[in-house]
Simulated assay, not measured.
Amino acid sequence: MQFTTFAILAILATVQARVLPRQNDAQKFTGALGGIKATPVLDSGNADRPFFVKGDTFVNAGAALQRSCDQQMNACMNLVNSQQANFKAADCQAQQQQCNAAA
């Protein structure tokens, strides 16, 4: 009985590993002004557009990583514009350059 349960669970795990996209974040930049991290760059599961960033898919990693950095920049600037940040717009811009350089 235990062997059968184990065998079924092993088969299900194998099938899911093939069907579900990997969720390893390709974005390695760790800077996070105001606690705002760069958007994750994930595997879309689509061979034609394999990179996924917050609802959008991309053909190549470079474009996906740039979008991730751009989204971080926008969120950073939103925080500055709300006057809730203890840093300036120039700091957000410098962080974006660092993020793009890390890509």
Rank of each mutant, 00 (worst) to 15 (best):
residue 16 Q to E: 10
residue 46 N to A: 08
residue 2 Q to E: 12
residue 48 D to K: 15
residue 70 D to F: 00
residue 97 Q to V: 01
residue 71 Q to D: 12
residue 41 V to D: 00
residue 66 Q to I: 05
residue 64 A to Y: 09
residue 46 N to T: 06
residue 91 D to N: 15
residue 11 I to A: 15
residue 25 D to T: 07
residue 69 C to L: 08
residue 81 N to M: 10
residue 54 K to W: 01
residue 69 C to G: 06
residue 62 G to I: 06
residue 88 K to S: 10
residue 76 C to M: 08
residue 75 A to D: 13
residue 55 G to N: 10
residue 59 V to H: 09
residue 8 I to P: 04
residue 24 N to Q: 13
residue 92 C to K: 01
residue 85 A to M: 05
residue 82 S to H: 06
residue 67 R to K: 15
residue 44 S to F: 08
residue 34 G to T: 10
residue 28 K to C: 03
residue 75 A to N: 13
residue 102 A to R: 11
residue 45 G to L: 09
residue 28 K to D: 05
residue 12 L to K: 04
residue 18 R to W: 02
residue 55 G to Y: 07
residue 14 T to P: 00
residue 25 D to E: 09
residue 28 K to L: 11
residue 60 N to A: 05
residue 78 N to A: 11
residue 35 G to Y: 07
residue 40 P to D: 01
residue 102 A to W: 03
residue 95 Q to S: 12
residue 10 A to W: 06
residue 39 T to G: 00
residue 4 T to A: 12
residue 95 Q to M: 14
residue 24 N to E: 14
residue 86 N to Q: 14
residue 2 Q to P: 03
residue 91 D to R: 10
residue 12 L to S: 12
residue 29 F to I: 02
residue 10 A to D: 03
residue 85 A to Q: 09
residue 77 M to S: 07
residue 102 A to C: 06
residue 69 C to Q: 07
residue 38 A to H: 02
residue 97 Q to W: 01
residue 37 K to N: 12
residue 65 L to C: 05
residue 7 A to P: 04
residue 4 T to L: 15
residue 54 K to G: 02
residue 51 F to N: 01
residue 19 V to R: 15
residue 32 A to G: 05
residue 84 Q to L: 14
residue 61 A to S: 13
residue 10 A to C: 13
residue 20 L to H: 09
residue 35 G to L: 08
residue 24 N to F: 05
residue 6 F to S: 11
residue 99 C to G: 08
residue 55 G to L: 05
residue 35 G to T: 11
residue 24 N to P: 00
residue 82 S to Y: 03
residue 87 F to I: 08
residue 93 Q to K: 13
residue 37 K to L: 11
residue 76 C to R: 04
residue 64 A to V: 05
residue 44 S to I: 09
residue 73 M to Y: 04
residue 34 G to C: 08
residue 30 T to P: 02
residue 86 N to K: 14
residue 17 A to M: 10
residue 66 Q to E: 15
residue 29 F to L: 04
residue 58 F to G: 02
residue 17 A to H: 12
residue 78 N to Q: 15
residue 26 A to C: 07
residue 32 A to F: 04
residue 33 L to H: 01
residue 8 I to S: 09
residue 81 N to E: 12
residue 37 K to Q: 14
residue 86 N to S: 13
residue 83 Q to E: 15
residue 48 D to H: 09
residue 61 A to V: 11
residue 3 F to T: 07
residue 58 F to A: 03
residue 49 R to A: 08
residue 21 P to N: 08
residue 78 N to F: 01
residue 19 V to E: 08
residue 14 T to A: 15
residue 35 G to D: 07
residue 62 G to W: 03
residue 85 A to L: 04
residue 5 T to F: 02
residue 3 F to C: 02
residue 16 Q to Y: 14
